[in-house]
Design a protein around this nucleic acid. Structure first.
Lengths: 195, 195
DNA sequence: GTACAACTTGTACTATCGTACAAGTTGTAC
DNA sequence: GTACAACTTGTACGATAGTACAAGTTGTAC
């Protein structure tokens, strides 16, 4: 009863590894061909396993998409939490995170958006897709108490990501930071810096 | 040589009408089942015509999706132009347009977002998907000269639409208007109202 | 009315999908 | 070593996809 869920090299561990490999393969497919390209066959081929193995771990395609979106969301959640718990400028950290969507993080951000859009139609995906916005809101809540300022920052963050991903908008962190600061510090009567 | 492209009841007219019907059917499918549900067969069934007719007017599925996105974009372009050319409060008009995404315009807005996301991967769709943002930017340009304020307003508009569509955020026009005004009128030193 | 092009349909071919299922392999417990 | 559960594979079935194509219908020009 000592090793319940994480025996170092049991069958469970091997199974979890396979599971993770299949999820990674799914994200690779979403990145390359879009969510529409995700099938048990394409995923299995990408992962280098038999088609049946994908159905063994994920009975339905929805299960697979939910797991994939969860995986992406987890990464972003960890990044934002790192910013929140860190000592640096939180708004600047968010700006840099958003600006990454134009560079190395572009593919992952695109996959996240693709899966999020899918969430509008698949209830199982909705709560996971909500996490990104909730995370940004939580970060914003450490900078202001004004609910509208929080909503404005969330909207600005999302819109900036869209602009960068779809419109190839400029992604200079300083530029992004200024737009975000604008949403946060409107002429609501207050002038001094927060926190 | 009098009636070149718009003879009142010629074969061309009938063809254009059929073409429009198929596009409408496509939008209905995107609204109901998402872009992934668009096939020549489903569209033809929705339109009440033979499957082959869809392929007759739109040789490939991409052609059909491009036409559908164009159709949606045209509607929004006309609405925004109406606001720009009108005499009312432009920012308020935009806020009301965005707030519509929660009500009667939800399906159309969802279809537009779905097709826009698709645009990230299909070059033919990209310039059309860009139109919505360009239209908002044009509206913003009538309210301010600050490029960053314009970018902020565009981002806020897009983010608010996402919040309403994906997150079921509140869609009170007054609320939307305040968020938009916040993005536009930041603490750039100016205080008075515009225009 | 006759011819032609535009329009419309039904049918069929090939490919791929989700899924099921029986069989084989492997690691662990006793 | 023996049994069992987890893992992995190959194969196959029914459904549906894009597409092609020959045939039929209709409106317009002469």
């Amino acid at each position: 009863m000592s090793d319940e869920s994480d025996s170092v090299d049991g069958r469970k561990a091997r199974g979890n590894k396979r599971r993770a490999e299949i999820i990674d393969a799914t994200l690779a497919i979403v990145t390359r061909d879009g969510a529409a390209g995700v099938t048990h066959r394409t995923v299995a081929k990408q992962a280098g396993v038999a088609t049946s193995l994908s159905t063994y771990y994920f009975a339905t395609l929805d299960d697979l998409l939910v797991a994939a979106l969860s995986s992406v969301a987890d990464v972003y959640t960890a990044r934002i939490r790192q910013i929140i718990d860190g000592t640096g400028d939180k708004l600047r950290g968010l700006a840099e995170l958003i600006a990454e969507s134009a560079g190395p993080g572009r593919e992952r951000a695109l996959a996240e958006r693709e899966l999020s859009t899918l969430a509008a139609r698949r209830p199982a995906l909705a709560p996971i897709a909500r996490r990104w916005r909730e995370n940004v809101a939580e970060l914003a809540a450490t900078l202001t108490d004004d609910p509208e300022a929080i909503a404005a920052l969330v909207a600005a963050s999302d819109g900036l990501c869209t602009a960068i991903l779809i419109d190839n908008a400029p992604s200079d962190p300083d530029y992004v930071h200024r737009i975000l600061a604008r949403a946060l510090d409107a002429h609501a009567g207050r002038t001094g810096p927060r926190r």
